[in-house]
Design a protein around this nucleic acid. Structure first.
Length: 561
RNA sequence: GCGCUCGUAGCUCAGGGGAUAGAGUGACGGUUUCCGAGGCCGGAGGUCGCAGGUUCAAAUCCUGCCGGGCGCACCA
């Protein structure tokens, strides 16, 4: 538990004791201790911590909140809590002021824990899987995938900082109808490139990348597939193209800073019989019925709007069947918690997938689906409609080349997944320096610059400041920074609990802002050796915490820019 | 039509039932003999979509309405 959490918990406990003491003395009557908060007030003048306890008791105690507050304060034991004063304010808040010296302990803490500072153990080593992007391997990655990649990867890092054992997984949709369509498109392109006049399939994939792929096949094998059986030809073309595509996807994601632990093939679920086995399992449990020649899953039993086809009339299982098998497989692999990042256009699947998990005997709450609104791309002041079929989309590769990995990742991670974001491409290209990521990176580079100069001036950076020296950090700017650093573990715990990495982006911005303010009003490399040592300890700690936050966001922490 | 979701400053977006709703950006004014001015400081800018309800207290929770996005296939 972080220092800050320990202090807060102590005060919580003392408040409850005060309540009980007041009741025993007959000063206050209540049945149960209400839920109350102890938090940092927004306004600094309201002290370091404030509680609404008195206000939550008004009904039970039948007294005015300010009177209750008085009684509570009178019965409060503040020994060993760092509290220096309590006052009643506003409608009945109790505001506490703390001895600022508690904050200096954070610097040795950061210096000792280094990149581990901020880590908490709410996960207790539990196995969690985050599945994200899982784009169809029939095309290139686009803006929506970019958002999913940034979000999923940061969430995974965040969860591991919070004590979970995290696995990143990419589900490869290498089976089904779309692959069949893909094969037909490849075949048409192949034959067209060799000069045959064949039509391109109506529902085919129009992307230019297919033509490039086909050209490579021709470079390698020439026209030898022209004379072959259709099935053999398509099978070869698809296998070649898929391998190429998946490799490309992997390389692009790695360029974006995203590395997966597992690449899971949908086809493997079909080949191994796991899909069929899963369907049998559901059938044995009585959740399957036949209608109009197809097999249906009774998803309405689990709150879905309608039942879903699981095996088509033609005997081929649907995508849904494979997906159920896939998620069953995840839990069978021992994951206690499974998180999926899906585009908002898939929200209709959430209820039925959870239902399917419940039908198979898993707790549906252990499957968490994070829906991400789609990215609206603006170019020349107009919305660009993205479609894979039409081949009109901005690829992740282009985004990385033109906007930059760090700027793009920060842009996506800053926003709540629920908000539809507008991405103005022209703005991002021409003025990418506007992206707030540079603000944070600049702070980091500046901190490194101070450290470089300190070194040049012959100051030792590895000396841990003494408590006496740290007590010299008394300015408002310094205290704000110390406080923010002390908050970091709590922020990680909260962000992990809520699965909201965008909180860390907010934290990094706020923290960088506090540093810039400090920098503009105080010098670090002063002549006074005591103060200088303390401030060096401070900036070493700030740099560390900032770097730790940036690592969660997946953006680099440059020493110079 | 039904379901999910969003509506907060000119624009892009934060906001854990709490006190005077914030940040970035844009426009405006100030700031460099001194560790990185890609910075800092300042004022201006708001019916938190609308209307009810719950509560000591609502941008936040509930209901209805309005507006945008998405979904409602034997596609994935």
């Amino acid at each position: 538990m972080s220092l800050y959490e320990q202090i807060k918990q102590k005060i919580y406990q003392r408040l409850e004791e005060s309540l009980i003491k007041a009741q025993e003395a007959g000063e206050l009557s209540f049945k149960e201790i209400p839920d109350f908060v102890l938090e940092e007030p927004r306004e600094r003048q309201h002290g370091d911590l404030a509680t609404n306890l008195a206000m939550t008791l008004t009904k039970q105690a039948k007294k005015a909140p300010r009177d209750i507050a008085n009684i509570l304060i009178a019965n409060l034991n503040t020994n060993g809590t760092w509290i220096t004063s309590c006052e009643i304010a506003g409608p009945g808040f109790i505001n506490f002021r703390l001895n600022p010296l508690w904050l200096i302990e954070v610097i040795p803490e950061v210096i000792r824990q280094k990149e581990g500072y901020g880590a908490v153990n709410i996960g207790k080593g539990e196995k969690v899987q985050v599945e994200f992007v899982s784009a169809n391997p029939t095309g290139l990655l686009h803006m929506g995938n970019a958002r999913g990649a940034a979000l999923g990867d940061s969430l995974a890092t965040l969860l591991s900082m919070a004590g979970y054992e995290v696995s990143r997984e990419f589900y490869i949709n290498d089976a089904g109808n779309q692959i069949y369509n893909f094969a037909l498109s490849l075949e048409a392109r192949y034959l067209q490139q060799l000069g045959f006049d064949v039509p391109f399939p109506e529902a085919g994939y129009h992307g230019e990348d297919l033509i490039a792929t086909v050209k490579r096949i021709i470079d390698k094998d020439g026209d030898k597939y022209v004379s072959m059986e259709e099935d053999v030809r398509r099978d070869y073309l698809v296998r070649f193209a898929l391998e190429e595509k998946i490799t490309g996807i992997r390389e692009t994601l790695e360029k974006f800073g995203v590395f997966y632990d597992v690449w899971f093939s949908e086809q493997s679920l079909h080949s191994s019989g796991y899909v069929q086995e899963t369907i049998n399992e559901l059938e044995n449990k009585g959740y399957i019925y036949e209608k109009e020649g197809a097999l249906w899953f009774k998803s309405t039993l689990f709150g879905d709007e309608k039942d879903e086809v699981i095996v088509r009339k033609n005997g081929i299982p649907t995508y849904f069947a494979a997906d159920i098998a896939y998620h069953r497989h995840k839990f069978a692999r021992g994951f206690k918690r499974v998180i999926n990042i899906w585009g908002a256009d898939h929200h209709g699947h959430v209820a039925r997938m959870k239902g399917a998990m419940q039908a198979l005997g898993n707790n549906p709450d252990n499957l968490q689906v994070i829906l991400m609104q789609l990215v609206r791309l603006i170019q020349d002041g107009e919305i660009v409609r993205m479609s894979k079929r039409s081949g009109q989309y901005i690829t992740l590769d282009e985004l990385i080349d033109e906007v930059g990995k760090d700027a793009a990742r920060f842009f996506f991670i800053q926003r709540d997944p629920d908000s539809t974001v507008e991405f103005d491409l022209d703005l991002a290209k021409s003025e990418s320096a506007d992206n707030p990521v540079y603000y944070v990176q600049y702070a980091h580079a500046r901190l490194c610059s101070i450290m470089r100069q300190a070194k040049e001036m012959g100051y030792e950076l590895s000396v841990e400041p003494s408590p006496e020296q740290l007590e010299l950090l008394t300015s408002q700017e310094e205290r704000d920074l110390l406080k923010k650093m002390a908050d970091f573990p709590g922020e990680i715990a909260l962000a992990a609990k809520m699965a909201e990495p965008h909180r860390i982006a907010r934290y990094a911005l706020d923290f960088a802002s506090l540093f810039h303010s400090f920098y503009n009003s105080h010098r670090v490399l002063v002549d006074n050796a005591q103060l200088r040592t303390a401030r060096l300890g401070l900036i070493i700690s700030i740099r560390q915490v900032l770097a730790n936050a940036m690592r969660i966001l997946g953006v680099s922490a440059p020493e110079k820019m």
